[in-house]
Design a binder for these strands. Structure first.
Lengths: 149, 149
DNA sequence: TAAAACCTTTGGGTTACACAAAGGTCAAGC
DNA sequence: GCTTGACCTTTGTGTAACCCAAAGGTTTTA
């Protein structure tokens, strides 16, 4: 199988297959005549395995470690179990953060229903945002300031 | 105020202040004698504003746009309201995804209670992971495969 | 006056790919 | 036989919001 054939069979993009290959999760042979990557059924199974692991929230690095254990003949199960047990509370915390964020957003939208648009006057940039509680200037408080897209 | 003075006053790192300056959210003057950045009380207010905006989930780019509106004399309020209304359902969706992830992780941990560690045998890498539902190979399904740390 | 503490800019690292460029390969039709 | 289009290769860039290190100038302090 060539890159896009494997990709199609697994339902991912060819770029993803190349990425996993670059990262060492897949180790295809080469067709000596043209330098193309060659994948077989085992690679397809391996890719399906990677996808399942990803749905459990494992990072590429973690999956690489898991595969390395297995390739080395060791059971990766204890590692997987540990990672999972460790990650679960982190995910829960993340959910709490996002719920708090959603609550703040909702509150803000509601509060705004009663507030007129303000023209910036050098003191006020946007009343809505300025009406929020002041971010703590406490060094020790870093629990609420992490966000992404 | 110098960089770390402003940083301390606002409860962020000096690196963050420099980052916002590089990104154009803050526009300090320069001390001609040594080239140091000089911030004043307005900059501190502005930084507090940025922090509040960040707690609402706005990206640096969005904050820059909001500030640009205000600096230009236009009310950023409608923009802020739109961004907020648009982002809220996205956050909700993200929460659902993470809850589904947490559920999968829990299910996996529970299922494992009844499963022995397997030694990789060339067919099975990790029974737990392989016992998961197969990731859909359907191109049109991209709803569950997005994750981060 | 020398070290400690802080400033500057530049550049690299983090995640999991997506995308573009430049150039070789291959199957199909004319 | 040749063009065309689809696919392959590697390399490098971009994404978000910083963190950290290096190299070198400045200011403060002991």
């Amino acid at each position: 199988m060539k890159v896009s054939e494997l990709a199609k069979a697994a339902g991912v993009t060819a770029e993803t297959v190349r990425h996993y290959t670059r990262e060492g999760l897949l180790a295809p042979t080469r067709d000596p005549s043209n330098g193309y990557h060659c994948f077989d059924g085992q690679d397809l199974e391996r890719l399906a395995f990677i996808q399942r692991a990803r749905t459990l929230g494992f990072s590429i690095k973690e999956v690489r470690d898991i595969l390395a254990h297995a390739d080395h003949g060791d059971s990766p199960c204890p590692l997987v179990r540990d990672l999972l047990a460790q990650r679960l509370p982190e995910i829960r915390e993340r959910i709490q953060e996002l719920e708090a964020l959603a609550a703040r957003m909702e509150e803000a939208l509601n509060a705004w229903a009663d507030m007129p648009d303000g023209i910036p006057d050098g003191h006020s940039l946007c009343r809505l945002i300025e009406s929020l509680p002041a971010p703590s200037t406490d060094q020790a408080d870093a629990t609420s300031a992490k966000e992404e897209a």
